[in-house]
Simulated scan of single mutants.
Amino acid sequence: MSDWRQARTARLWLDEPVEGDADALFAIHSDPASWRHFPSGLVTDPAAGATMVGASRRRFERDGLAYWSVRDADGGPAVGRGGCMVPDEALGIDGGGRGWWNLYYRFDQRVLGRGYAAEMGRAALDAAHEVAPERPVLAFLLEHNVASRRTAEKVGLRLVWRGPDDGNPDPDAVRLVFLDREPDDLFVAEVASEGWDAERNVC
């Protein structure tokens, strides 16, 4: 099996986060422009960057795959964060559940429009399918985030659920769930009914 702590695509370096990425990750997630479709998701705690680094590293150790720091130059600063990760909640109370891979992508506003999210997303699906193919890959989106929806479609996911976004301060917000395989109705209904931490899971 491949070591997915580092991976390459045509233009991107996908790396297990390191402490030096914390400031760049915080800057990306604390930029209001990154959250125009979900303003309440804005990250404001300066310690959040270090938390992201630690969360990814723990999950790489546990699951063999987690969110990468995305670079567009070898050794360059992180210009995004993304990949597939198993949310702790997906494993159940005792940690013994099958879980699923959550596909996530968020990038520095200065690199939007280059197709980086889809390029990284394809690599993330390849990684997830190799590491634990029995786990479905899901992406949680907000319907009015058209660019995010297009990315999910470009990497091969398809819409399997549409409904209210419980817990969103915007009462009119609609959540979409995209999946990489034929849906299990019970599974999708369970996933769609849960509330998820915006920073980690909603694209």
Rank of each mutant, 00 (worst) to 15 (best):
L91Q: 05
G95P: 05
C203G: 10
W100L: 14
L42C: 07
G156Y: 11
M120S: 12
D185E: 10
L157G: 09
A127Y: 15
K154M: 10
P133L: 01
R81T: 00
S30R: 09
G156R: 05
E16P: 05
Y116W: 14
D166Q: 08
A123D: 11
G96Q: 13
W196Q: 05
D88G: 03
V18S: 10
R71W: 02
F178Q: 11
R58Q: 07
R135W: 15
A24E: 06
A152T: 01
S56L: 03
C203K: 03
V202L: 11
S148T: 04
T51W: 12
S56C: 04
D74P: 08
R57A: 03
S56Y: 01
G195R: 06
A33K: 05
H144Y: 05
G82K: 00
G64A: 14
A27C: 00
L103T: 00
A73V: 08
V146W: 04
D31H: 09
G20S: 09
Q6F: 05
G121H: 07
D197A: 12
A132D: 09
R71E: 13
D108M: 01
E119F: 09
S34Y: 01
F140P: 00
E134H: 08
R98D: 15
G156P: 02
V131K: 11
R98A: 10
E16D: 12
L159R: 09
D63P: 09
E194T: 07
A90V: 15
A152F: 01
S2H: 12
C203W: 05
F26W: 06
D88W: 07
C84D: 00
L141S: 07
D31L: 06
D165G: 11
C84M: 03
D180P: 02
G54A: 11
A128K: 02
M52A: 05
D31Q: 12
D88K: 10
D74G: 06
V146E: 15
D45V: 06
G64Q: 07
G76F: 04
M52L: 13
A198G: 15
R114Q: 04
D170G: 00
P171Q: 14
I93P: 06
V53T: 01
P133K: 09
S34P: 11
A22P: 04
A55S: 12
W13Q: 14
G80C: 02
V70W: 15
G97H: 07
T44R: 08
E89D: 15
A173C: 13
E194Y: 15
L157F: 02
I28D: 04
V70R: 10
S30E: 02
D23C: 00
G96N: 06
F187S: 08
W161I: 04
H129F: 02
G167C: 07
D15S: 08
N168I: 03
L179D: 11
I28H: 04
G95V: 11
E153T: 13
H29W: 03
D21Y: 00
F178L: 05
